[in-house]
Design a protein around this nucleic acid. Sequence first.
DNA 1: GTCAAATTAAAACGTAAGTTTGAAACGCTT
DNA 2: AAGCGTTTCAAACTTACGTTTTAATTTGAC
Lengths: 229, 229
Amino acid sequence: MDTARQLDTTYKAQPPMEASKPDTATRILDVAERLFVEHGFEATSLRMITQQAEVNLAAVNYHFGSKDALFESVFMRRLTPLIAACLAELDGMEAQFGTLTPEQLVMAFIRPCLALSKDPSRGGALFVRLLSRTLVENHRLLRETLSQQYSVFVQRFGKAFHRALPALGQEDLAWRMHFAFSVMFNAFAGNDVLKIFVRSQIVSARDPDMIVKHLVPFVVAGLTSPPLR
Amino acid sequence: MDTARQLDTTYKAQPPMEASKPDTATRILDVAERLFVEHGFEATSLRMITQQAEVNLAAVNYHFGSKDALFESVFMRRLTPLIAACLAELDGMEAQFGTLTPEQLVMAFIRPCLALSKDPSRGGALFVRLLSRTLVENHRLLRETLSQQYSVFVQRFGKAFHRALPALGQEDLAWRMHFAFSVMFNAFAGNDVLKIFVRSQIVSARDPDMIVKHLVPFVVAGLTSPPLR
DNA sequence: GTCAAATTAAAACGTAAGTTTGAAACGCTT
DNA sequence: AAGCGTTTCAAACTTACGTTTTAATTTGAC
């Protein structure tokens, strides 16, 4: 009878004992996250989720209200802390160094992503893949809920990029940020566009540190290339 | 030159007269392409497709066999000529200039994509978006059918990149190609990762020429930055 | 220990999906 | 005009989906 439960996206920490079996809601979130990444939202059924999570089918609707709301919970559980971590990193670095170099700026975004990727307890690299999928799938969630809520992220990083690359005009800067974030997201998501063509790419070594080592110079070079015209 | 027009997916040219109403199969392909891009494979039903194409529901199974096969036809109708065009462009430029500069190489890939994007009769930018979606959705089609069939594409461009950037080691080069194609695909697909956060980005001006103008310097700068270590 | 609230469980509901069927309509050649 | 293969059509079939319902069970405060 309780419907007020939905939309409370708070991530309940499971009782520390009995480490083998987390909360029902948490178990659903964990499995759903993996399956949404693997098969996409539409192709993932509640029956797949509840079977693998070893919970009853009705548990999803009881705890989250609907499949849509479940997706939102899965998504927000990771995104909110990630955004916060990026902003905190940016604030911290600016407090320490003043105006940042482009490389420092790139690292302010990458370091939290890297930390997330290496932390299995927070889903590891799964969420970045989910984010990447959700982006190209153009979800209702992204268009409605998020765009307003997290505009602060783009504003903060936009200003920081403007300070770091003062030679660039507004438009030029927007394009480069677009390209930079595009390649960074895809790198962390492991979307290897060349894998359509070639069987086993060297790149498929998925060590996050290796990604960063090659990614940062590429992105910084693109950002700092001479202004157009 | 032409590297095998394999698996002729039978793109039947419609009779040139009566331009208003193409072939049934073609009408299905056109609508399906748009809807697959818009909503994704799973979320697009045959009933949506056949209604908008103004054909009978059973026509899809009659002409293509199944929804999966329809997707493959939609996909191959565009990819086969695009790959061929890229290889032809590369061959032509190498015949004219010998070893290419990184920028020329990038253009050998971009020019056919640009031409496709600007040609509504071939679906315009739709297919690049479909390709991008299909990539992150990790389709069975990509893993099985395509990887072997079009490995020649990556081999040819890989060799060309190796000649254009002789200072780079195998691994370094593979990473940079990965990043370069990643950002190029996403740029043409219009996957603006920043649009989650901000309502109307300058970037959303979708003029393909504008994309190229900013994209090429960014990619070339990333590719030609000093080798690692 | 008791009782109310919160959670889990099994089953069913209504809908929409992909596919199949068999007959009708069409386009040719003869 | 007749005949025949091709294509279209309306309808039904099977299955799986998200969701709801109702009852059983567990949990926690007193």
